[in-house]
Simulated assay, not measured.
Amino acid sequence: MNKYITIADRKIGPAFSPYVIAEMSANHNGNLQAAFNIIEQAKKAGADALKIQTYRPDTITLNSTLPDFQIKDGLWSGRTLYELYEWAHTPWEWHAPLFEHAHRVGITIFSSPFDTTAVDLLEDLNAPAYKIASFEAVDLPLIRYVAGTGKPMIISTGMANAEEIEEAIEAAHTGGCKELAVLHCVSGYPAPAEDYNIRTLLDMQRRFGLVTGLSDHTLDNATAIASVALGASIIEKHFTLDRNGGGPDDSFSLEPAELKQLCIGAKTAWSALGQVDYTRKTSEVENVKFRRSLYFVKDLQVGEIITADAVRSVRPGFGLAPKYLSDVIGKTVIQPILANTSVKNDVFK
């Protein structure tokens, strides 16, 4: 298995804390200052990276009102594809200012390109990595073109079956990609948690041998944090300043306080995984004395036999362990015993 990939000097893999990507997508709602604010809030919340999407409506679809291009249900019902992407896209002239602002703020920024011209633009900006969106996972020529940049690549697998994922991975490798990760994803907006079947992450790690993560479209953080326990090294979530902002993706995105909790929760879950360890932990040392042990519950004189009603297993833990109870009963005491004193080996023979 590829043990890790590296994006902007940050190692990403099972041995490192989860890499949290805040996906801006269309949540700037056509306002460059809002986009700047999203970058700043993503950094403040603790995200490792801010991701955008690079396309124009004419590079992602056709300007047609024919039935094939009409959206008939879901969040964007009533629009054509062209209208949706005209509404949602991040203008190309914004890209340089966004990259510059992210660098000033101190957060990694990269993008999902949707055609070769988008890749060329991002190469001019020295993007440190690329993300292939789920809907483009079947666009093998695009994957090969991205692979040719030599940059790390992350592929989302929403809607793709195992064979299609294999094909995308093969295209990336043959195109020259040396650092590749795949994200389990459900391309519903939003997606119910029960659709995620995050045990799939374990199979993906075995089947593909790559750094694996989760692109999460559920409405809270439970699925994402749970995925860390199953080996997710990357968590991607849509991020907005205001879920009620009215933009294309606002309604299924995290707000700043929620993104902060995701960053904390994912890293806490990862740190809790640790390794197989049955030794006594540092935090337990002081509490050993409160375990149960054997105590005398009545006075005994020298030469008396210790009977069952003379000894009990109680807290604290300064006496012999309870497992020695049957060995103690029937022994003869060799010094005076006071009730409520611990049972030691040197008080009987």
Results as ranks from 00 to 15, higher is better:
residue 253 S to C: 05
residue 300 L to F: 13
residue 268 T to D: 15
residue 26 A to M: 09
residue 153 M to P: 03
residue 167 E to Y: 06
residue 50 L to I: 12
residue 276 V to Y: 08
residue 311 V to L: 14
residue 66 L to S: 11
residue 157 T to Q: 02
residue 197 N to P: 01
residue 53 Q to T: 01
residue 231 G to C: 02
residue 236 E to V: 04
residue 66 L to T: 09
residue 280 R to V: 06
residue 301 Q to V: 02
residue 306 I to L: 13
residue 339 A to W: 09
residue 349 K to V: 03
residue 225 I to G: 12
residue 47 A to Q: 07
residue 74 G to R: 11
residue 16 F to T: 04
residue 94 W to K: 09
residue 171 A to H: 00
residue 329 I to E: 12
residue 230 L to Q: 06
residue 339 A to T: 02
residue 221 N to C: 07
residue 75 L to I: 10
residue 187 S to M: 04
residue 79 R to H: 02
residue 196 Y to K: 09
residue 330 G to V: 07
residue 30 G to L: 08
residue 257 A to R: 13
residue 260 K to T: 06
residue 214 L to T: 10
residue 198 I to L: 08
residue 103 H to D: 12
residue 197 N to D: 00
residue 194 E to G: 05
residue 263 C to A: 07
residue 10 R to Y: 07
residue 17 S to P: 15
residue 120 D to E: 15
residue 180 L to K: 03
residue 164 E to V: 03
residue 135 F to I: 08
residue 180 L to G: 03
residue 199 R to Y: 03
residue 293 S to N: 10
residue 70 Q to A: 01
residue 228 V to S: 07
residue 3 K to I: 00
residue 196 Y to N: 03
residue 210 L to D: 03
residue 134 S to R: 14
residue 118 A to V: 04
residue 92 W to F: 11
residue 339 A to H: 08
residue 147 A to G: 02
residue 91 P to W: 10
residue 52 I to H: 05
residue 32 L to N: 05
residue 48 D to C: 13
residue 80 T to K: 02
residue 278 Y to T: 00
residue 295 Y to L: 11
residue 348 F to Y: 15
residue 2 N to T: 09
residue 161 N to H: 10
residue 22 A to H: 03
residue 167 E to I: 05
residue 297 V to I: 15
residue 79 R to D: 04
residue 244 N to A: 07
residue 121 L to F: 07
residue 141 P to R: 13
residue 108 T to W: 12
